[in-house]
Design a protein around this nucleic acid. Structure first.
Lengths: 166, 166
DNA sequence: CGCGTATGCGAAATAATATTGCGCCTGCTG
DNA sequence: CAGCAGGCGCAATATTATTTCGCATACGCG
């Protein structure tokens, strides 16, 4: 389950599909320098091995009326494992919460949330999040603007790293 | 440029492609209840109108040796627009920084970073981020575990909203 | 060395999908 | 109620995906 199991062609496939997930297999094969059938086999293998977890269209939230994005820092009263996972379950069921990460340090969780407008976020915040069981403190920050948003892996860093090892 | 320009079929297309960006057009057409050609036309239109910004394979960072994910809260000395965008340019050029959001409140920016291991993140932190021009303070939090990670738009919320308006 | 064996490639054939062209229906609008 | 615009589906064609096969290379082992 490590990058070392992959050859340069596999890594290039991952990089290309990360950049354009709808690329046709023939185009992909052309770019990585092999013919279509083995290319498709490699893609399937990468999918099955879990290197590729899925494919998603990147939908513009703002166009759809989700004008507001907020980060929420959440502290809990109890950090017992059962309480942590109870909170995580809550997050999974809140559609406005898109990401939930458990952190070290003072804050227990950071949530990335979206909402149509401020008032609907406010009501989520007060009626759901702050008043949820075991939640001790919530600090929120509105996203003013998004300067960079490139989910995924920096393949240039990866290649650099591997070339040093070799 | 609003959700109201879209009919229910368009929104369902967006939802389906957000869930599975590699779905074939015939499968998509079947799901949304129209035939393939108009379905494809709608997808193209949605792409050109910017509702769909792109397609990406979701690559598993951990499998590729990026074990560490960190949120960094950055405060700057000057919040003049030129200084803000200078910092954003820096972030865009740092491959370990995957997201950079400008916030309201005390902290100016939040960065989502990845790294192969703690020590390489530490060297990035000390040699690049903390020592960058105009950076006043950096507080970092390691991600212990990721409970939810569903980038995109909650279409169930959207539909609920639209049904109330109608 | 020399022989299986495994792995991965590519060519060719076939199946599925994407894409184009076109005529039909529907709902306005004058 | 004719004419027009928009959107659909059908049918034909072009691309692409997928399977099947045979060949080459590399490796382990007698």
């Amino acid at each position: 389950m490590s990058a070392s199991k992959l050859d340069p062609i596999d890594r290039q496939i991952l990089a290309e599909l990360q950049a354009d997930g709808r690329m046709t297999n023939v185009e992909l094969a052309k770019r990585v320098g092999i013919s279509a059938p083995p290319c498709l086999r490699r893609v399937r293998t990468l999918e099955e091995a879990g290197y590729i977890k899925g494919y998603h269209a990147d939908v513009d939230a703002r166009s759809l009326g989700f004008e507001v994005q907020v980060f929420a820092m959440v502290g809990l009263q109890s950090q017992a494992e059962s309480d942590l996972s109870a909170f995580e379950d809550l997050c999974r069921n809140w559609p406005l919460v898109r990401e939930c990460h458990m952190l070290n340090g003072e804050v227990d969780f950071i949530l990335k949330c979206v909402a149509p407008d401020l008032s609907s976020f406010q009501s989520f915040l007060t009626e759901q999040l702050t008043s949820a069981d075991n939640v001790a403190s919530v600090k929120t920050s509105l996203v003013i603007r998004m300067a960079k948003d490139e989910p995924g892996v920096p393949f240039d860093v990866l290649e650099e790293r591997l070339s040093k090892t070799a």
